[in-house]
Amino acid sequence: MTTTETPRWSSRPYSDADRDAVLALYTEPDFYFRTGDPDTRPEWEILELIDEDTHVLLADGEVVGLYAVESEANNACHYSMQLRLRASAPPAWWQSAFGELLRANTWRREVVRLALRFDEFDYRGLAFARSAGLREEGTLGAVTVHEGRRHGYVSFARIWEPIS
């Protein structure tokens, strides 16, 4: 079921029980979670993309996406986030999921910098990032070949001024 109503969000670390649901997400040609070519990736590679930081994201109890938050630098409280919802999820879901993830990830720890990147060909990801109040830090040019052409990625961040 997909509606524009905000669903009840929940998440859990990826486990084997989620394998089929996650492989199904990767049959979508624009499910850009750590790859620019999701539907052509073999099972082993998808399972390698899903590391221990990866969580499945559930809307009203159904797996609709993935996210991961990784520490980028010692003591800097700099984290990067990858977030992807399936194609049928409306933009409002991205915003509400992101809002909940922000709350969750700053709830019990200091975050100074949270960075997100979206490829230039990822229209849905870019539209989300540009409407989420994130700082746009520039485009790293030409890094990825996608369907025969080079594209950059756009860097976004949210900064919380550090307390020390």
Binding site: P29, P38, D39, T40, P42, E43
Partner: peptide, 9 residues
Amino acid sequence: MRLRGYRGS
């Protein structure tokens, strides 16, 4: 036609 990724099945 589009090639798709391999699955165990």
